[in-house]
Design a protein around this nucleic acid. Sequence first.
DNA 1: CGAGGTTACGTAAGCGCTTTCGTAGCGCAC
DNA 2: GTGCGCTACGAAAGCGCTTACGTAACCTCG
Lengths: 346, 346
Amino acid sequence: MPRSGPATRLIDVAERAGVSIATASRSLRGQDGVSEAVAAHVRQVASDLGYVVNVHARTLAGGSTSIVGLIVHEIGDPYFSEIASGVVHLATARGLTVQICHSGRDPVTELSQIRTLLAHGTEAVLIAGSGYVDPTLQSEADKELRAFQRSGGRAAVIGRHFLRTDAVLPANVAAGEAIAEHVLSLGHRRIAVAAGSAALTTVEDRVAGIRAALERHGIAPGDVPVVHSAFTRDGGQEAAERILHEHPRTTAILALNDVMAIGVLSTLRTLGVSVPHDVSVAGIDDIAVAADLAPSLTTVRLHMQQLGELVLSMALKPPSARPRRRGCGHELVVRGSTGPAPRRRA
Amino acid sequence: MPRSGPATRLIDVAERAGVSIATASRSLRGQDGVSEAVAAHVRQVASDLGYVVNVHARTLAGGSTSIVGLIVHEIGDPYFSEIASGVVHLATARGLTVQICHSGRDPVTELSQIRTLLAHGTEAVLIAGSGYVDPTLQSEADKELRAFQRSGGRAAVIGRHFLRTDAVLPANVAAGEAIAEHVLSLGHRRIAVAAGSAALTTVEDRVAGIRAALERHGIAPGDVPVVHSAFTRDGGQEAAERILHEHPRTTAILALNDVMAIGVLSTLRTLGVSVPHDVSVAGIDDIAVAADLAPSLTTVRLHMQQLGELVLSMALKPPSARPRRRGCGHELVVRGSTGPAPRRRA
DNA sequence: CGAGGTTACGTAAGCGCTTTCGTAGCGCAC
DNA sequence: GTGCGCTACGAAAGCGCTTACGTAACCTCG
């Protein structure tokens, strides 16, 4: 779609200001080598003419794009939309625009997204969302990012500490521990986990945290059913059904994220199981609606918006020799969905 | 940030394939004037080399960018993230990437976003989110879009029927009517509205729908308090407080969107008002969590994801002489937050 | 007062692609 | 066998910008 609009070009500004195109270019970018008087004049003329630089020409000539790419697993998921919100907010404040790609949790799509973003010459590529347990699924992506960085590009990820990029690390293991400690402290011993796909490292980490806490309290891993399903509301429903069916004496269900917890709550409501009287339910993430569910959801806050801001700010910093790691706080948020373990169950 | 990566360029593909750069270009874009044998060979070589076209060069030379811009009021709001999800899904399916801009409901920011997107040469500019009642707030944006279209660009919006672009029209008026009819049919007569900013046309439309329905049932506009606040959860809380304070005999609160309804429910819970026993509450939109609130929220489904897909597909169609209009269904979804009007109130 | 350094600007060479235009080669009709 | 109309391809001109390099003009100092 060739556009032939009467857009003002740099050369128009230069002519009108009575300077060369080079001087105009330098003036507008605040580069030195131009007297302040001339620069100010050029800026004035540009503004009068409503000049907007052509990104493509700029990029092609070696300039920067002012675009950052963000790859997320599922843009509709609150976990990711809150991250995206953080990224977009900070980006807007810095005069950058964000190009969002949705991988649908498919490593192949993800790879092609990365390639596209690289070809688009984005300033930085950000990836949010769990990595894959199977390293072969992302080795290509890894290679691509490395090459991108070697050639001066910036990349940063949320999680995926195994990549050689800057990374913000959500407290997955600690969150798992915190939520498990919480239900343990309430006296629960028959605990089940509603987990997302076993292929994701986030799932692995959160489960590891839960297991560690339980083991400290003398509960063997074998005594903790972990039901894998999808990281969605429906996945949570399905997991809850299976848990209640296969392990009817369960008194606490730990969902590995809030979205699944919503599904768990929905199933329990349907089955007439009272929460937290009969069964306690907890999530991880603390998405915005967690406080407004029925009952309100006990969870671990992971500050997604902050994760988003952090990952962008890391990417924007001048590169360092070795990949930086940055944690992000987590807090147990106790609400109405967890309560003391029932004295006995049917 | 000049990038000097060893990216394969078209000329590399051409050389390796033993053809000219022109032929290579034509082959890769499936343009005719190239024999099928040669074209296939070129495509094979390109794929072997992992060639990805440089968008900036392509655009500069008059090609297309494969990028669509989407401007939303508030990316963190589920209404918009569901729209964004629709846009991103369809875009991904069509091999397009989406550039998301967040205007924060500020017309000035919005205008600069539009300019940026135009300067980026996006295929299409999409705007989601209420227009402003005051036309001067958007006349600049309007002008900009018109110029964009005249020069071959595509634009489409959700709502904002006053713009001369293709538009998908959410059923705002009808949704207002539907939700009002619903509470009327339950016997409510003392109805209050928790509204977002009066500056937004969406608010205007939904209120108009509500008023129309009420008037049909003999309730004068003066008898329907409309409390304006922000289109957020906190705004809903605040509106509910004011409604209960100023109009204590209210039996039904209609929130103009689900996010506000969440705030309303929260305030009622805090104040110990039972929903729907004492007061019924309803929203509009049917965001994903509406079904999982406590109580589950009666609302009007506006199919945001579909709105997103529609607006993109309209923008992608060949332009028509006059702006197209496309409606999108709506359905009343009755859940637990509304019930019969109480016989009497304190 | 001229060598050498600085500053302020202009000239022009691309960045990687699309596309216009030109041309070689072929088939076909006369 | 000449001429015409195709088709399949190549050469080269930009798209609008950044930047390396060149060059005046001015300054500083011995």
